[in-house]
Design a protein around this nucleic acid. Structure first.
Length: 826
RNA sequence: GCGAGAGUGGUGGAACGGCAGACACGCCAGACUUAGGAUCUGGUGCCUUUCGGCGUAAGGGUUCAAGUCCCUUCUCUCGCACCA
């Protein structure tokens, strides 16, 4: 049998779609709001390696869904573009001297051609590229809005620095103390940075997750990343010096007296158990409170801590370290004089950088107290525990219970004690209820070339001055060397004619900002630019935003859970607050596709030699086979290994459809059984497709086509619906078969088949007869036969009399249309 | 350590609490064929000659009935990681 000529067919229809602009999306008011859908793919970074079989998985899923929606009368926006700023092109430039733009656009052209070869129904007229100055003009414009709102600020702060990428990294880009991109161990470095105040939106970013139809694990990851906790801020007075220490104290140290040391705790109920305090080594009080006698030891510890990498500092396995400062604080609830230590187990970046240590009820404090012989006082007892509570406890517990050794609060439940002690602190002005977040502000500057220049200047008289919006885009200058200086300045700093400029405010001499934006900037809002990609006067027209937004379905990998997906929610909320977008969330529904692994069940990688190139698959099996196979492999959301043998199976299925189409298509009625199967098939394929359960939809089409394949002559009424059903999956084949059926218009404009519910119901049902839960027989009964009649019939079913002979029927259970179960004894 | 998800034939995977293994790959047998992952027919979870028994990581439980619900354990994947 002749193979179907997929190569010719696919080329032909891709050309047709392009010539006829078949998938151009137009803001047609005749479609009411609920008949419009915005279906978005995470756009790719066009790497030099070309498209990977993982890319088409999500793209195929959304494409099938979009084609399905269009055939069901929806106006669908389905765009594609490229996330084009980024380090690989820049690193390549450093090695070869090739301008990153050259590499990037070469790669984009290759990607676009590869993506098109798979026959996706994108509206290519809306393509965006983030490194295009007409695009990043608006990235810069949004940055200016953030700046004007006070959400972008400069700070000199210790940051995560990747020595290999020679740039700072956001917290979200550090995994296990290593650079997320290149795996190099990050170090701490203190340099001037641009930071976005994402923490100002922490509460909303957290709360609004509840309204999103996103996978729970992703929402949970964002919740954990934001890390909200409730507790209290409490001020501890620094105790006056005593005895010889006081006499020895110099004037600088004694000035600390009267200072208040503020801490944050989630367990104010354990205040009576605070037996010492710990400051982060970087805490500003350390210098002031350290006594002369302890100064050398303290300074030594600080130096040691500074030399350690974050990874070493946060290694949980290591023993706690620390030194005593010589100073004491007064516990405000009981007046106890408690020593103040420093230790690197307290982080300067969280809370106030200082803690009250409650060793009886915090395992970290416990470890520390045990190591340094500090007192441990139990202040929470387990429910029912009777005491006595005057001994040092044998174990540490953070479980709830009731307060002991806590003065007037004794006996209160943990919950009650937290509320009452917090109120008591507030009355006396010693503390307040307080909320903390793990989320840090977003480190937004990169000391690299290939990114959006940050559109501000540094003026000697005016300070930081934003460029006028009319001066955007601020384009990247040409440079001789792309190599980062590594000193914390980008290559842009080496171009005086670009750096030296005039202040937009006073006209005096000023220097341009030489840091660039991180790769995440462009992807924060690209879904908005698709709405109106060529607009020169605004990032997008309001009416177009209102027409399409929000995104109804967003499909992409899970690796962006706390990066892109958090950042773009933040930007979107800022734009919402400025009245520039119509919703407070950008992506209503999110689906993460699973990874496609190599045939060896390992992650695909060049080094493992298990990489599958989509071009090869399209070449030898066709784009339709590739698409259908990727959807047939298993559920979209799970990871699954590639199997070329499995691909062959799908290819045979498409061959079979072609073979069927070559038989006589006749205007004759089909038999009742086939008609039933047809309507069941339409129902299942429609339901599964709209639910993105593509694997089971394909399976059903296989079942149906296997039936059709048994016929010599194919009734048109049995064949046309199958062609329509397969079209979203195998669009080239669908078009060709549709044309061969005599239709002149694209099948993508045809109407999806409709099933008749009554034809999906079997009037005869097979009823299973069980004895003690085990299947012993079966019989056929009309649909809807009442349960008592089913039980009667079951008695007469084959072999059942033997099973019941001499036994007592304890109970007979019947489920309509399904089964009868006899429960017997003896 | 904490959190989340997942464990089903030789393989990918199906299965509103109701016949476990749909569909597909592979394999076996046969047919046909100038056989370039070809096409067609039948078979294919394991044990047993049959009757039948056993089977969804392991163990327990709820139920007339459990892959599915509950508890315990194990393994794998992912995320977080001294956040007070």
């Amino acid at each position: 049998m002749a193979k179907y000529p997929f190569s010719d067919i696919e080329k032909k229809w891709q050309q047709r779609w392009e010539d006829e602009q078949t998938f151009r999306a137009v803001e047609d008011e005749r479609f009411p709001k609920d008949k419009r859908r915005y279906v978005l793919d995470m756009f790719p970074y066009p790497s030099g390696a070309g498209l990977h079989v993982g890319h088409p998985e999500g793209y195929t899923a959304t494409d099938i869904y979009c084609r399905y929606l269009r055939m069901n009368g929806y106006n669908v926006l389905h765009p594609m573009g490229f996330d084009a700023f980024g380090l690989p092109a820049e690193n390549y430039a450093i090695q070869t001297g090739t301008h990153p733009a050259v590499t990037t656009y070469t790669n984009i052209n290759r990607f676009r051609q590869q993506i098109k070869s798979l026959g996706f129904s994108y509206d290519w007229s809306r393509e965006v590229t983030t490194c295009d100055s007409e695009y990043y003009k608006w990235t810069q414009w949004i940055f200016l809005q953030l700046f004007k709102k006070g959400l972008a600020y400069e700070a000199e702060m210790p940051i995560n620095w990747c020595p290999s990428c020679k740039t700072g990294l956001a917290n979200e880009e550090v995994k296990d103390g290593h650079c997320d991109r290149c795996g190099t161990k990050v170090v701490r470095k203190r340099i001037r940075q641009w930071v976005l105040k994402i923490t100002a939106y922490a509460e909303r970013l957290l709360a609004d997750l509840d309204n999103l139809d996103w996978p729970e694990p992703i929402k949970l990851m964002q919740r954990n990343w934001i890390g909200r906790s409730e507790g209290a801020s409490v001020r501890f007075a620094i105790a006056p010096r005593e005895g010889s220490e006081s006499a020895a104290a110099d004037s600088a140290s004694s000035s600390a007296e009267g200072d208040q040391l503020e801490i944050y705790t989630t367990r104010p109920d354990t205040l009576f158990g605070a037996t010492y305090m710990v400051l982060a080594p970087e805490h500003p009080f350390v210098e002031r409170i350290t006594t002369e006698a302890r100064r050398a030891a303290v300074q030594g510890y600080i130096d040691e801590a500074a030399a350690k990498s974050d990874l070493e500092r946060t290694d949980l396995a290591k023993e706690k370290t620390g030194v005593f400062t010589g100073a004491y604080a007064i516990n405000p609830v009981n007046g106890a004089r408690i020593p103040i230590w420093i230790s690197d187990y307290v982080l300067i970046s969280y809370g106030t950088g200082a803690i009250m240590a409650v060793p009886a009820h915090d395992s970290r404090d416990w470890d520390f107290a045990k190591k340094f012989g500090l007192p441990i006082v139990q202040v929470v007892a387990a429910p029912g525990e009777t005491g006595p509570f005057d001994r040092e406890p044998e174990t540490c517990t953070d479980a709830d219970g009731f307060a002991v050794n806590s003065g007037q609060f004794d006996g209160l439940s943990t919950k009650e004690a937290i509320a009452r002690i917090t109120a008591w602190l507030e009355e006396r002005g010693i503390g307040t209820k307080s909320i903390n977040y793990k989320l840090r502000d977003w480190l937004f500057s990169r000391q690299r070339y290939w990114g959006e220049p940050i559109p501000v200047v540094h003026c000697e008289t005016c300070g930081i001055v934003p460029l006028s919006e009319a001066d955007l885009p601020l384009t990247l200058p040409e440079v001789k060397s792309y190599a980062p200086t590594g000193t914390g300045e980008s290559p842009l700093a080496a171009i005086p004619e670009w750096v030296n400029t005039t202040c937009p405010r006073c006209g005096g001499p000023a220097k341009r900002e030489t840091n660039t934006m991180p790769q995440w900037a462009g992807s924060c809002w690209y879904y908005l630019r698709y709405l109106d990609p060529h607009n020169g006067g605004a990032f997008a027209d309001q009416e177009k935003i209102d027409y399409w937004m929000p995104v109804n379905l967003y499909v992409g990998g899970a690796e962006h859970a706390v990066l892109h997906l958090l950042y773009s929610r933040f930007w979107h909320k800022v734009l919402y607050d400025l009245g520039l977008v119509n919703t407070d969330e950008p992506f209503m529904r999110l689906v993460n596709q699973g990874m496609i692994l190599g045939e060896d069940n390992q992650k695909m990688s060049k080094s493992r030699g298990n990489v599958i190139n989509p071009d090869d698959i399209v070449e030898s099996f066709g784009a339709d086979a590739m698409r259908v196979y990727e959807m047939f492999m298993g559920p979209l959301e799970v990871s699954k290994p590639w199997s070329t043998a499995g691909l062959v199976g799908v290819s045979r299925f498409l061959e079979r459809l072609w073979a069927i189409s070559e038989r006589p298509i006749v205007d004759e009625p089909m038999n009742a059984d086939l008609e039933k199967l047809l309507h069941k098939t339409i129902k299942k394929v429609a339901n599964d497709t709209s639910a993105l359960n593509f694997n089971t939809a394909i399976s059903q089409m296989m079942i149906y086509s296997n039936e059709l394949a048994k016929l010599e002559r194919i009734p048109r009424a049995a064949w046309e619906p199958l062609v329509l059903l397969i079209a979203p999956y195998a669009p080239h084949l669908g078009e060709e078969l549709w044309a061969r059926l005599g239709h002149s218009e694209s099948i993508s404009k045809a109407t999806y088949p409709v099933f008749r519910e009554e034809l999906t119901i079997d009037e005869e049902r097979e009823i299973v007869v069980q004895v003690n839960g085990k299947v012993r027989s079966k019989f056929s009964a009309p649909a809807g036969t009442p349960t008592d009649a089913l039980i009667q019939m079951a008695h007469n079913a084959e072999k059942i009399a033997d099973w019941l002979a001499g036994k007592e029927i304890v109970k007979a259970i019947a489920v309509k249309n399904k089964l009868v179960n006899f429960v017997i004894k003896g």
